[in-house]
Design a protein around this nucleic acid. Structure first.
Lengths: 247, 247
DNA sequence: CGACTAGTTGAGCCGATTCAACCCCAGTGG
DNA sequence: CCACTGGGGTTGAATCGGCTCAACTAGTCG
């Protein structure tokens, strides 16, 4: 299921064309390109990192959806976050011999692969890129904080509203929302595992929100019928969107 | 409640003497010392960062306990993590004009204060320190991940076991565990808010764990009577302890 | 002596869980 | 061509973990 693809030059990176990312100097882009060992394409449901792995590679998700998760020894699973194009993967696996998380794709995906032994070079020769990596890490933490707030203190209905609006906004920023809606590759089990709910209760809550006219979902295409009501439900505040770094 | 204290030279930093932190070069320590604008001492229950603040300062907790939290508009509060000496505070507040979290002390504390406008200098002139900041950020994220797993997928009993063992190990590493136990400055409301539980249920669950002989708590001194049983309950695995960076 | 904070306990309720069917549909293989 | 299979979704019923409400205790501080 994994193939090497022809390596896309970073200067022509399709992500940079979206305008969602901050600009880099030519020298920085050259460095990233040099650091990029290869590019892989995988199918839906592929493991990128396994729990307990000590793989020494870093990734940028170039296209597709994925998620980070961890399971308890009896199989209970918690999804920490969903990953969208531009997200950086694998830092935690480098820093520590910790029991880290797993990463699995939800759709066909392509990833840029970076050997971690060049990470130090990156900090040394291009401090601005080092800064960017810190930014990405801190940003990932903000999202996990937000999820923790949901799971700890929001009701099932509020959690689902929060997840939908949050994913929708992130995807929108990347230009992934098409006229007929946003292609959502999650099934209800993923939603349940991200929100700390059971599958059955997730199903019933989804139906209730749907019946209340807050969203439509046809053939995996999500549309928010009443984003304002959804945001109110979730106690969500839209944030000013600024370009974010891309490695 | 806030005073400036005589600035402790970083070379004689009491935290570095614990052996829990990785060594730095003289030049790095000098830089940190130069960047450290001042040192503040605050009482228990002081706000270091408020939600919504856009304060442009960074902190290292030098002594004492604190916690990071966020509240929903109707007052429900989620504690993301407890902060111990050596923890770095305030990065998220720099990166984004986001609704970030608040930080509040649990005990009298002292903090090193760094102006954030020298952060870029740090990356530029001492890339190893930049790397360290990324490490600290990624580490903080690991802890939040772990908390999210607890709140999402563990039972009340398991969550409390996890919190106790986790805090105990972190404090132990810093040499904060004394013969009569670990001084725990949390009340049951803090525990409830960290674990996504109600106060009443937290109380009952604590009593049950106590009656089961898993821990004792007298005058705020925590002792784990049966750490192995506690770890089994929480599905917790001890990790190899390696020195961690200190800024 | 209030007044306040932190902890404790019982009763009743409800949101969410588990268990168990059942449906639909896209493959797949005989 | 159709029977079989498996993944996802849906639904009802019974149960339970954790919630809310409410009251009470112990200690501390002014």
């Amino acid at each position: 299921m994994t193939h090497m693809s022809p390596k896309i030059p970073c200067k022509q990176c399709p992500l940079r064309a979206t305008g969602a990312f901050s600009a880099n100097t030519d020298s920085e882009i050259e460095f990233i390109e040099h650091m990029k060992k290869r590019e892989i394409s995988v199918g839906a449901g592929s493991s990128i990192l396994r729990e307990g792995d000590d793989r020494k590679e870093l990734f940028t998700l170039l296209s597709g959806w994925a998620f980070r998760y961890r399971t308890l020894s009896d199989g209970r699973r918690q999804i920490f976050n969903f990953l969208l194009p531009g997200d950086f993967i694998g830092l935690q696996h480098q820093l520590d011999a910790r029991h880290p998380h797993g990463v699995e794709t939800l759709t066909e995906s392509t990833l840029c692969v970076f050997p971690s032994d060049r990470l130090w070079d990156l900090y040394r020769t291009h401090p601005a890129l080092g800064f960017d990596i810190t930014w990405l890490t801190a940003n990932e933490e903000l999202i996990v904080d937000e999820n923790l707030l949901s799971v700890g203190r929001r009701s099932a209905t509020e959690r689902i509203a929060m997840l939908m609006i949050h994913l929708y906004k992130r995807a929108e920023r990347l230009g992934m929302v098409e006229p007929d809606g946003l292609r959502l590759p999650l099934n209800q089990q993923h939603i349940a595992d991200a929100l700390g709910l059971s599958l059955v209760h997730t199903n019933k809550t989804l139906k209730r929100l749907n019946a209340a006219g807050l969203y439509t979902l046809k053939d995996g295409r999500l549309k928010l019928v009443n984003p304002a009501a959804m945001a109110r439900l979730a106690d969500y505040y839209a944030l000013p969107l600024r370009p974010r770094p891309l490695i």
